[in-house]
């Protein structure tokens, strides 16, 4: 009986391993292949100022988008994690909408609201903020598509903290804000940091929504598309490899941050 069970289990394990390996091959092979093909061209690609400008524009815009979602997304995540109110389920569901909507459609939706001929767009324009072919447009598109990552990560982090620690902090003389600042936020810090990194990474990789709002200044994905269309596949390989290496570096940082044991931050 025991032998049969063992045999069944090992067959299942072997089948799982084979299927899992095929999945891994599908993920890793294109990446390894691209990087391998472009090893000798990476240096020259990096020396090209257009490539560097595009990568810098992506990093900078993604940083601003992350900052924006941090300032507005973390409070929303806290409210969702701590309070129950009418309409919460609708708000909760709507947070994930940017993930579901095709990103070029998201870009058009943003254009319809923030375009120069709309009331909101004209309002922003009057104070010098324009969204068409500007850094603001890129940041707006990035915020829209990547905000769910920040909100969800922070929400999960807040939910994992027992509200009773905040009650204790209040009993010890802390106001609501001080209890959040000194207890809740440090305890949720790693989750929020993960949210920041995911938001930043997702912003860097955004193409569809960005190109609808702002084809210039060129971000890395937009620049890559330009190179591919105008100069062909071989010219695009090195830029692709650079973007892949950047993404892998971000992934490694996320893993290192989330794998660290809890240390006092306060």
């Amino acid at each position: 009986m025991k032998e049969v069970w063992l045999r069944e289990k090992s067959l299942f394990m072997v089948a799982s391993a084979i299927l899992g390996f095929l999945m891994l091959v599908l993920i890793l092979l294109p990446i390894i292949n691209t990087v391998t093909l472009s090893v000798d061209k990476l240096g020259s690609a990096l020396m090209n100022f257009e490539t560097r400008d595009a990568i810098f524009a992506s990093f900078y815009a993604a940083f601003l988008a992350t900052l924006f979602t941090f300032v507005f997304g973390v409070p929303l995540a806290y409210v969702l994690a701590r309070y129950n109110f009418h309409g919460k389920s609708i708000i909760d569901a709507s947070i994930d909408l940017p993930i579901l909507i095709p990103h070029d459609a998201a870009g058009i939706a943003l254009l319809l609201l923030f375009g120069p001929r709309t009331i909101i767009g004209a309002g922003f324009s009057s104070i010098g903020i324009k969204f068409i072919d500007t850094l603001f447009g890129i940041v707006l598109a990035m915020v829209f598509v990547s905000s769910p990552f920040m909100i969800r990560s922070a929400e999960e982090a807040f939910k994992a903290i027992n509200p009773d620690v905040e009650k204790v902090a209040r009993s010890l003389g802390a106001s609501n804000f001080k209890a959040f600042l000194h207890v809740t936020f440090p305890l949720a810090f790693r989750g929020i940091l993960t949210g920041c990194l995911l938001t930043w990474a997702r912003s860097i990789s955004e193409f569809g929504a960005v190109i609808i709002l702002a084809s210039v200044p060129r971000t890395a994905p937009v620049y890559l598309y330009d190179v591919f269309v105008n100069q062909g596949l071989s010219a695009a390989v090195a830029v692709t490899a650079l973007l892949i290496i950047t993404a892998v570096a971000i992934f490694v940082i996320i893993k290192l941050v989330t794998a660290k044991p809890l240390k006092p931050i306060y």
């Binding site: 027992n162 009773d164 620690v165 009650k167 204790v168 106001s175 305890l187 240390k263 006092p264 306060y266």
Partner: peptide, 21 residues
């Protein structure tokens, strides 16, 4: 509010702040 009541509170699971000594 709780911070103005002059209370000492010990909850069931103690709720020590894990990020502090």
């Amino acid at each position: 509010p709780p911070e103005k009541r002059g209370i000492g509170f010990v909850p069931q699971e103690y709720m020590l702040f894990p990020h502090m000594t």
